[in-house]
Amino acid sequence: MQETRLDIDRIRAARRVIAPVFLDTPLYRCEALEPGLGCAVSIKLETANPVRSFKGRGSELVAHLLTGERAVVCASAGNLGQALAWSGRGRGLDVTVVASRFAPATKLDRIRALGARLELVDGDHELARERAAAIARHDGIRLVEDSLDIETCEGAATIGLELVAAAQPFDAVLIALGGGALATGVGHVLKALAPEVEVICVQPLGAPAMTRSWHERRVVTTDSTDTIADGVAGRYPIPAVLADLLLVADDAVLVQEESITTGMRMLLDHAGLVVEPSAALGIAAIREDRDRFAGRHVVTIVCGGNVDVAAYHRWVGAT
């Protein structure tokens, strides 16, 4: 395999500094989902931790390496902010999170509850990134950039080590694609240690920048996004992250909003899981291309469970 920015030895070492509460999340075959999808489906449940997303793995690695620093700032759609607040609180770091005021209230409230200073901007995540960078320059503190900072990718990559160690083999893994930390991290490990596994990235049709960039092998930006999957709704792919993704992903696909909400409902009805839209992207991809996955064993990473209850009820029709 050609070299990415990631390193297997560093990824293995990361497990020693990440709080055990984020490691070894459940991985199990969910047979109840299978009649509706036409293939064997296993779930890697990254919501079973204090911040209810995979981001805690990366934030733990970042915070560990910042020992001795006084403060840190990041932009977040919500989940990274919660994770960095949690990890920073345990290590005496002052954490500032910049987010869009249109981000889910549940995520914003939790960032505040975890002790971080929250600054809201009147725009999307890209504007939040600009503001976070300005704060870092002005205050002389560390800026954490999700997916660009290798720690966020290598923390997420520890999921890949757990997948490779699984007793039951699988044919493909479906990974939500946003900034790229999860996809490049897990993809790197699988290509290095289990190259026979197909790595498929999934993004909403209404936020296609990274997927289009993967297919065109160059950075493609978009003027706007239109999706309920706020956690993956970026407009400006990072060149270094795209370069990594091109080396480890076998495919990148786009799915419709209706498939996302149907996937959320399926995870509720058949797995008892309340998830945010980004976490249902893998189920949506299987649903839209059943022939591709028929007869195969597929793992889908359920990456986050931070969702506003009122919005969730609207989307899935839960009562």
Rank of each mutant, 00 (worst) to 15 (best):
153 C>W: 00
114 L>P: 06
152 T>L: 10
143 L>F: 10
121 V>K: 10
186 V>G: 04
138 H>D: 15
180 G>Q: 05
109 D>S: 14
172 A>Y: 00
190 L>Q: 03
114 L>T: 09
120 L>T: 15
121 V>W: 04
126 E>I: 06
101 R>G: 12
109 D>I: 02
145 E>P: 00
137 R>C: 02
98 V>G: 12
102 F>W: 06
133 A>F: 10
183 A>G: 15
182 L>I: 13
104 P>A: 12
133 A>G: 15
175 I>T: 04
117 R>Q: 15
119 E>N: 08
123 G>P: 12
122 D>A: 15
123 G>W: 11
174 L>P: 10
179 G>K: 05
94 D>G: 12
147 S>P: 07
98 V>W: 07
185 G>S: 09
187 G>M: 06
95 V>W: 04
109 D>M: 12
143 L>R: 13
163 L>R: 07
143 L>C: 06
163 L>Y: 11
104 P>E: 10
96 T>F: 06
126 E>Q: 13
119 E>P: 02
169 P>K: 00
135 I>D: 05
178 G>S: 13
106 T>P: 00
187 G>I: 11
127 L>R: 13
190 L>T: 01
95 V>G: 09
178 G>F: 04
141 I>T: 05
97 V>Q: 06
167 A>R: 11
158 T>A: 03
109 D>V: 03
125 H>S: 08
138 H>W: 01
159 I>L: 11
133 A>N: 10
158 T>Q: 02
162 E>L: 08
97 V>R: 04
160 G>E: 06
154 E>T: 11
104 P>G: 12
175 I>K: 00
103 A>S: 15
142 R>M: 05
145 E>R: 15
132 A>E: 09
97 V>W: 05
122 D>T: 04
145 E>K: 03
91 R>F: 12
104 P>Y: 09
116 A>W: 03
172 A>P: 01
147 S>L: 06
108 L>A: 08
174 L>H: 11
182 L>D: 03
140 G>Q: 06
99 A>N: 05
118 L>V: 15
148 L>R: 13
168 Q>G: 00
162 E>P: 02
133 A>S: 15
113 A>Y: 04
158 T>H: 05
104 P>V: 07
127 L>N: 02
134 A>M: 04
105 A>R: 14
101 R>H: 13
144 V>G: 08
114 L>N: 12
172 A>L: 01
129 R>N: 14
101 R>E: 15
127 L>C: 04
113 A>W: 02
170 F>N: 01
99 A>Q: 08
162 E>R: 06
159 I>S: 03
106 T>C: 13
142 R>F: 10
186 V>I: 15
119 E>Q: 14
152 T>R: 04
160 G>Q: 05
187 G>T: 06
89 R>T: 11
161 L>G: 07
134 A>W: 01
150 I>G: 02
137 R>N: 08
96 T>K: 13
137 R>Q: 13
186 V>F: 06
